[in-house]
Amino acid sequence: MSTGSVEQFQQSLSRLDTASTAVVPDELASTVADLIEPPAVGAELPFDGLSLADAPVTLDPSPSRLREAVTGVSGSRMGIASLGTVAVESRAEGDEFVALYPERHVVVVRASDLRTDLSDAFGWLRAEFEADRQSFILATGPSSTGDMGALVQGVHGPEEVHVIIVRDNE
């Protein structure tokens, strides 16, 4: 995806009070280490050539580790540039739990996996459903609710989100 889409994605994230950092692949491990607050849990990234193996996170966490975690780190194979939305897939690696239980979510998305808008994202989802991958959460910014009056963050998920965008080798 073009640099313009990365910039649009970051602008959308900023409007949602969601921080973002664009990095090249070699900077991923140090950026993850800088962004987590321990204890941290993670779901191994769904990308060839990118891994959390060297990151200071517990992979394949137990339920007690999830409860104790302050930060969760996962990957997203799709982001929507115009909305600042990421797709959290329910995989055996535990992406959904890692993304939703800790109070801070650090999510990694590749620039090449950014879709321009919702229409483009639905095309991607259709292909995923046809490939029998059928459980995704579309997450936009920190969790928030206004059900009981004032807007409250962190009730149904993380109260803080930071998106790391991994640029293609340019």
Rank of each mutant, 00 (worst) to 15 (best):
Thr3Trp: 14
Thr3Met: 07
Gly4Thr: 03
Ser5Asp: 11
Ser5Cys: 01
Gln8Thr: 14
Ser12Cys: 05
Leu13Met: 02
Arg15His: 12
Arg15Asp: 14
Ala19Leu: 09
Thr21Ser: 07
Thr21Pro: 01
Ala22Gln: 12
Val24Lys: 04
Ala29Arg: 06
Ser30Tyr: 03
Thr31Gly: 05
Val32Arg: 00
Leu35Asn: 12
Ala43Phe: 06
Leu45Arg: 06
Leu45Thr: 10
Phe47Ile: 09
Gly49Lys: 04
Leu50Gly: 03
Ser51Cys: 04
Leu52Thr: 07
Ala53His: 12
Asp54His: 07
Pro56Ile: 01
Thr58Val: 12
Thr58Lys: 10
Thr58Pro: 07
Asp60Val: 01
Asp60Ala: 11
Pro61Asn: 01
Pro61Arg: 01
Pro61Gly: 03
Arg65Gln: 14
Arg65Pro: 00
Arg67Cys: 02
Glu68Gln: 15
Val70Lys: 08
Thr71Arg: 07
Gly72Phe: 09
Ser74Met: 05
Ser74Leu: 00
Ser82Arg: 15
Gly84Met: 08
Val86Tyr: 04
Ser90Tyr: 13
Ala92Cys: 04
Phe97His: 09
Phe97Thr: 05
Phe97Cys: 02
Ala99Phe: 06
Leu100Tyr: 13
Tyr101Ser: 10
Glu103Lys: 13
Val109Ile: 13
Arg110Val: 01
Ala111Gly: 09
Ser112Glu: 13
Asp113Ala: 04
Arg115Gly: 02
Arg115Glu: 11
Thr116His: 11
Leu118Tyr: 13
Ser119Trp: 04
Asp120Gly: 06
Asp120Gln: 11
Glu130Leu: 13
Ala131Tyr: 13
Asp132Leu: 10
Arg133Val: 11
Gln134Lys: 13
Ala139Thr: 12
Pro142Arg: 14
Ser144Ile: 00
Thr145Ala: 09
Gly146Lys: 05
Gly146His: 15
Met148Val: 15
Ala150Gly: 03
Leu151Gly: 00
Gln153Ile: 13
Gln153Gly: 01
Gly154Pro: 14
Gly154Val: 12
Glu159Arg: 15
Val161Leu: 08
Ile164Thr: 03
Ile165Gly: 01
Ile165Arg: 03
Ile165Val: 15
Val166Ile: 08
Arg167Gln: 07
Asn169Phe: 00
